[in-house]
Design a protein around this nucleic acid. Structure first.
Lengths: 384, 384
DNA sequence: GTCACTTACGTAACGGTATCGCATAACTGT
DNA sequence: ACAGTTATGCGATACCGTTACGTAAGTGAC
């Protein structure tokens, strides 16, 4: 654990590394000429040429029409995002949200299927599978290369559901094992709050933050966390379960006033309009949320707190009061923003995670067999 | 922030990578033969031979007497830990603790120098420098290649002291800039609680934990944290400042009963012996500490909590009550252990950090110019 | 339409790196 | 002294990346 021994590599490693570099330049960018790719990746045009030939052969990139300019027209290549697709699933109690994305992460299609209530574990699993199958059937010719399921609960590193309060019938289920057999592609699974955080980091409110906490405020209260640009789960995936500290009141009446209101949006607008009863409830709610968030903020000192979940639809009406209370509780209060992705966050995050695994499987250079070297613990030095 | 573009490499990168691999095998291990090094690093004997020749040339390794066995005796090489040294300094209010270590991290010498009270910022800095100079003078022929200072306070990423309550005269001081001129070697600086955590992870109570929280309980209460095997500082280095949440009572009377006792060790032994007044104080103290720790534990869900600082000298007498209270407050309580390194933890951690930076400067392979690729966010998948 | 200019392409040569195969060296044990 | 064992050292081969240079394919001016 202290000293990861990295193993050496042969010349082929270099090519893998450089392939990854070229691909990294080309994806999420305009079509480019060999020369410009070489400049961006610090490689000679020759090397880029060789890598490009391999990638074209494999169908990952393709040539596009050259731009007209002075001199001999340079070949241009673009990343073929359509060369592969991934499926992200957000599994809720009453339905499943599906997102089909290409290799760029662009959403090709999304949908929501309902799941009947009262289904047993096996029947529910089958309902999810057949719903996904129907969804995919509407997009002929597209087979996912990787999929990821987001569920409300704790999943262990083997892909088995350890504890899901909303879906107790799945406790102990080998979800990844089951889903791996569905569409002849690798499957992955992750807690939904973590996936929402991943999505917000990818293309949501946390695009510019590498340390942030994502609080889902809704019927359930869930927390996802990215630290150092990576999801932080903790031992057993229980990071962020601050609600367990009774002292902070996350399970008390001030939370339930809001969570159990049949029309919480109304409550927030009433409060803003001057209804003092509503305002009192909102303020107590915001204060309670802020207390729990403050404990987490003081612990990890993040750049940002994102408020998501159903209640975040109220926008500033809910975020504003939480922000005010948080500023009183923290020495160095972070930015507080509402979720930018709304209800699709979890499914998008699932697609992102499927994509990450796919990229790693397809193009991962794997320096040695070990983890990338951690390097020193800081950059706080200056050379004499 | 979302997509680190890594740049390509030439064949020389391969050699750097393999040099690092060979060195990684050789250091902190018995002297080895070329063949065995090759097996350990997944390299051919030929390649190892070439790398070994370079490293011997540079003085980093040397040949030792072969082992006698059947067959032609194989050359054996060992890492020359004595080829470089680092200096770790633990700067306190009343004195400085110094540790001189070699490239293996073995402590060559340690010492403590006193600093007169009431010194101004400049005079205090000069006292630290001259103390270190005197210490080094007793070890002729040894010049540090890197040094690190641990101080009680927040340091920014440029090496300037941002906020130190115990040493207010250093606020705003460019500590790294100043220390870089002392011994013609790069200097680094870090918060002392973080360094203590680093040391416990290296060769202390947290050797087998990659996610842990280190609580320093003493006159001050400080927290250092490692998550994912790396120090976690947070934006502005304020991670772990849970004491700021008044609700948790870290600044209240139950803490001061113990902190301000002239003989706290006595208090713990009295409590264990049955003195009900002492026992009450200890229990209130433990409960208060546990409340703050619980907030952090529920936030990051670590593998381990280490209790260090002056009060941890009481061992189980203080750790036991904290553990009991923590078990009542957390769903999934982590292991709780006393510090294994005691008062030398900070200086040792400083030496470790100096060493990390030195290793990176000397042997860092630096795949491309960019950060190592993060890879997917989990390994929770199974291939279909 | 021709010519100069510009930029990219494609081949060839070169150096660095790693690997495999094989003859040789060096030591142990009988 | 000799067989057995293991490491060493040399040579050949293959892969990769870079530089150099002649050639191709456009644009723009006249």
């Amino acid at each position: 654990m202290n000293s990861p021994v990295l193993s050496g590599g042969d010349p082929a490693l270099l090519r893998r590394l450089n392939t990854e570099a070229v691909l990294g330049v080309l994806r999420n960018a305009e079509p480019m000429t060999l020369t410009r790719i070489g400049q961006a990746a610090s490689l000679s045009r020759q090397t880029v040429d060789a890598v490009i030939a391999e990638l074209t052969e494999g169908g990952w990139i393709e040539e596009v029409a050259p731009e007209r300019s002075i001199g001999r027209p340079a070949r241009r290549y673009r990343f073929r995002a359509e060369a592969g697709h991934v499926l992200g699933l957000d599994i809720g109690v009453t339905g499943v949200r599906l997102v089909l994305a290409d290799l760029d992460g662009s959403v090709i299609a999304s949908d929501r299927t309902r799941i009947p209530e009262g289904l047993g574990g096996g029947a529910r699993l089958e309902a999810v599978r057949s719903g996904a199958e129907g969804f995919l059937a509407r997009h002929p010719g597209i087979r996912p290369r990787s999929l990821c399921l987001g569920i409300p609960g704790i999943i262990d590193s083997g892909g088995t559901v350890r504890l899901s309060t909303p879906l107790p019938e799945w406790n102990g289920l080998d979800l990844v094992g089951a889903a791996s057999t569905w569409f002849d592609c690798p499957a992955h699974a992750e807690n939904d709050a973590n996936l929402a955080a991943l999505a917000e980091h990818w293309r949501g409110a946390a695009r510019h933050a590498d340390d942030f906490i994502h609080v889902i405020a809704g019927h359930r209260t869930g927390v996802g966390m990215m630290l150092g640009g990576r999801l932080h789960r903790g031992r057993g995936g229980a990071a962020g379960e601050i609600g367990a500290l009774a002292l902070l009141g996350w399970e008390g009446p001030s939370m339930n006033d809001i969570r159990e209101a049949e029309d919480s949006a109304r409550l927030f607008s009433d409060a803003q309009a001057g209804d003092s009863d509503a305002a009192g409830k909102v303020d107590r709610f915001a204060r309670t949320v802020a207390q729990g968030v403050a404990a987490m903020v003081l612990t990890v000192n993040p750049d940002l707190v994102v408020i998501g979940g159903g209640l975040s639809r109220a926008g500033e009406a809910v975020v504003g009061p939480i922000r005010s209370h948080l500023e009183q509780l923290c020495l160095d209060p972070p930015q507080v923003d509402a979720s930018a992705l709304g209800v699709e966050a979890v499914a998008l995050g699932a697609a992102r995670m499927a994509l990450d695994h796919l990229n790693d499987a397809l193009f991962g250079a794997h320096v040695g067999a070990a983890a990338p070297s951690a390097g020193p613990q800081s950059r706080r030095g200056v050379t004499a």
